[in-house]
Simulated scan of single mutants.
Amino acid sequence: MDRCRPDFAIRLIERIKHFFDIKNIVFVLVMDKTQFSKVVCHNYGYDEKLGEEYLDKFIDFKVSLLPINKSLHNELVTIPVLKKLFEDVGEFSDDIVFIFYKVLDKYISPRDMRRKINLYALLKTGNVKKDMFLIISIISGPNDVIKKFRLLTSEIDQFIQVHKLSSQEIETYFKDYLSLRVIEFLDIFNKLKNIESTTYAYDGGIDHKQNLILDIYSKCSINKISRLEDFPKQHQDYLNAYLVEDLESQDDEW
């Protein structure tokens, strides 16, 4: 109700009170009472206390909802929920679900989550490796795409080290405990890890190492890149080509 035009909302509750005060009929009003009270005060010139008293004429009792603890987003965004939402838009890759789940590091409303998934469905390339980075761009923005991916690989690497897991055991862990078959992510993860752990102690070895890393990211970029610095720009240009507005200012109709 608080999203309606203020004058309409006030007229609505007045009509409910005066025209529908019928036995055994209950109206449930969902509102931000504090904000609505301010609207009443503004419309009728009441002070804050009178605004509250005005609303009490229409409300017999109230139930306050606890505020969402935004630090507990993982309790709200679960893997089964994500799998269903992605399947609804024709995406069945567990890698995409895993990336979305892990990269999401702050609270997201159900509406915004569905909007981002719908946007992904519109823009996905069909190549899982590329689409993993696309979903990161949609969630965190293109400029942070490599940073977010590196943080994720670092987190997984630490988990492996602490629990002394082999490559096969980490796949089993994902399957048994997360119900996910994460294949493409682990393929990139293992290749990057092997490159980083290898010593290239010869002339041009460092350049060769960087070229190997570039080759991996190039295969995950929208188009082939010649510099790692071009990777975020590829995703920015790709998003801009399809979006009229910036991601943060999209209409709620998504």
Rank of each mutant, 00 (worst) to 15 (best):
S154V: 06
L151M: 11
L123T: 05
G126P: 09
V128Y: 00
G141K: 08
K130D: 08
N143W: 06
N127S: 15
I135D: 02
P142R: 02
N143M: 11
D144N: 15
F149E: 00
T153P: 02
E155V: 00
L123K: 06
L134K: 09
L152S: 03
I138L: 04
M132L: 08
V128W: 03
I135Y: 05
K129A: 14
F149N: 00
D131Y: 02
M132H: 05
S140Q: 11
G141L: 11
L134Y: 04
V128L: 09
M132W: 08
S140C: 14
S140H: 07
V145Q: 01
N143R: 15
S137E: 09
D144M: 13
R150S: 14
F133C: 01
P142Q: 11
N127W: 09
D144T: 13
E155W: 07
G141E: 09
I138D: 05
P142K: 00
D131V: 11
T153R: 02
P142S: 15
K147R: 14
I136K: 06
M132F: 11
S137Q: 06
T153C: 06
L151T: 07
F133W: 10
D144I: 13
I138E: 02
I146G: 05
I146P: 10
T153L: 04
S137P: 10
T153W: 00
P142I: 06
M132C: 15
R150D: 14
K148D: 02
L152K: 00
S154I: 06
L123E: 05
L152Y: 01
K129E: 13
L151V: 07
M132Q: 02
D131M: 12
K147C: 07
L123C: 10
I138V: 11
K148I: 09
N127F: 11
D131A: 07
K129F: 13
D131N: 10
I139C: 13
V145R: 01
L123R: 03
F149S: 03
I136T: 12
P142C: 09
M132V: 10
I138T: 07
S154H: 07
T153H: 00
I135R: 00
V145Y: 00
K147N: 13
L152Q: 02
S154K: 08
S154F: 03
V145W: 00
S154W: 03
D144C: 10
V128E: 05
S154D: 15
K148T: 07
L151I: 10
K124E: 08
T125M: 07
T125G: 12
L152D: 01
D144W: 07
K124I: 08
I139D: 06
R150F: 14
N127P: 04
R150C: 12
K129V: 11
D131F: 05
S140K: 14
P142E: 04
S137D: 10
T153V: 12
D144R: 14
R150G: 13
F149I: 03
D131L: 13
D144K: 15
D144G: 12
G141V: 08
S140P: 03
K129P: 01
N143Q: 14
K124D: 03
